[in-house]
Amino acid sequence: MLKITPYLGALVLIVSIGGLWYPALGYFMLLIFAAIFLSSPFRGRWFCGNLCPRGSLVDFWVSKISKKKKIPASLRSMWVRLPIFFLLMGFMGYRIVNIVGALNTFEKIGMVFVTMCLVTTAIAVLLGSYLSPRAWCSFCPMGTAQRLLGGKRYQLQLAKEKCINCKKCEKICPMQLKICENKTKSDCIKCGRCVAVCPKDALQF
């Protein structure tokens, strides 16, 4: 992860709470969307593990109160993820289309982004507290988009001959991935924690 990663969680609070008084803050979401769609075709879900403000919030703040349970496999299923993606994106698009042309259009569209940020952050915090910090990230619409655009890019490489099967990498993985299985990990967020904790330098990107 980047040195700035642990501090980015403040941004999602500024947008989702401060945006209630200053709707223009909602347009920060457009920068997030742009960064996601520019980076994911080349590095998959790298944004999630390094620059996502909500990811930082759950990793470094919510994790302190999380029960850290196992993330249900059903939440990772595309049968769950794709409907959620289209539902949230469709609802946001519908709201924006109905606002265009109205009075104070700029502020009202900003409030749509703020509302989406606030609602999804509340869900992320609740799931992160009750289940695991990154529970929301297992089916996050933007995470799903990154997986579809570049899930096979910038893959974690495992040198099997070096691995001693200590499972330290799997214990520290925020996404609870099976790192010791030498398979494509489309939901790897490239945070690098597994690489850092490996005692045999068996992992690298």
Rank of each mutant, 00 (worst) to 15 (best):
G143F: 06
L158K: 07
L148Q: 11
C188R: 01
Y130W: 08
S77N: 14
R43M: 12
L88D: 10
K64Q: 04
L57W: 06
A135H: 02
P133K: 05
I164S: 15
C194F: 12
R43Y: 12
K185Y: 04
L2G: 12
A124S: 03
P41I: 00
S63Y: 06
C198M: 10
C169W: 02
K67M: 05
G44V: 00
K160Q: 07
C52R: 14
C117M: 12
Y130N: 13
I17E: 13
F28K: 11
L203I: 09
L31W: 04
Y7L: 07
K152I: 07
K160V: 12
K168H: 14
I32Q: 10
L149I: 11
V15A: 03
S63T: 14
K160R: 08
A202E: 00
R95Y: 15
W46R: 09
G19P: 04
P23Q: 04
V97R: 15
L203Y: 13
V125R: 06
I99Y: 05
Y94V: 03
G151S: 05
S63I: 13
F91P: 14
W21Y: 12
T115Q: 12
G55Q: 00
P72V: 11
K168A: 11
I17Q: 02
R45D: 09
F106M: 12
K64S: 01
F139N: 00
F28D: 08
A159M: 14
I96V: 08
A73K: 13
I179A: 05
L203W: 08
C137I: 13
T121H: 07
C166W: 03
K152L: 05
G151I: 00
R45I: 02
V112Q: 03
W21P: 14
F85Y: 15
A102E: 08
I32C: 14
V114R: 15
C169L: 01
P83T: 06
C52S: 11
A145E: 10
A196E: 03
I96P: 01
C194Y: 13
I99C: 03
Q155R: 07
C173V: 00
C137D: 01
F85N: 10
S132E: 15
C163N: 06
C48F: 08
S56L: 01
G101E: 00
G150V: 09
K190P: 14
T184H: 09
D187K: 13
K171H: 11
Q157M: 15
K70F: 14
C191F: 05
W136V: 04
A102N: 15
K171C: 11
